[in-house]
Amino acid sequence: MGVKFIPDGYHTVTPYLTVRNAPKVIEFLMQAFGAKLSHDAIKRPDGSIMHAQVTIGDSHVMIAEENEMAKATVSTLYIYVPDVDSVYQQAIKAGGSNVMEPMDMFYGDRGGGVRDPSGNSWFIATHKEDVEPKELAKRAEAFHKQQKGKAA
Rank of each mutant, 00 (worst) to 15 (best):
M62Q: 15
D58L: 03
F123C: 11
V61W: 05
V19C: 00
T18D: 03
A151W: 03
H51D: 15
V25T: 14
V74H: 05
H144Q: 07
A152F: 04
I79A: 02
S97G: 11
K43P: 06
E65G: 01
Y80Q: 12
N98Q: 10
K145D: 07
V131W: 01
G113S: 11
D130R: 07
Q31E: 15
E141W: 01
G119S: 13
T73H: 07
M30H: 08
A151N: 08
G34M: 01
N98I: 13
I49V: 15
F33G: 09
L29W: 07
E135I: 10
L17H: 02
F123P: 09
S59G: 10
I26V: 12
H11L: 03
I124C: 04
T12S: 04
L17T: 05
K138H: 02
G108T: 12
S97H: 09
T126W: 02
D109G: 05
E27C: 07
H127T: 15
G149H: 11
G95F: 01
M1A: 10
G9E: 09
I92V: 13
E129D: 07
M62T: 13
A32L: 08
F123Q: 14
V13M: 07
L17V: 09
P102T: 02
Y107E: 13
Y80H: 13
S48Q: 13
G112N: 09
I79R: 02
R44Y: 08
I124V: 12
G111M: 03
G149T: 15
M100D: 11
Y88R: 01
R139H: 00
V61Q: 04
A140K: 06
M1V: 09
H60P: 01
M62P: 10
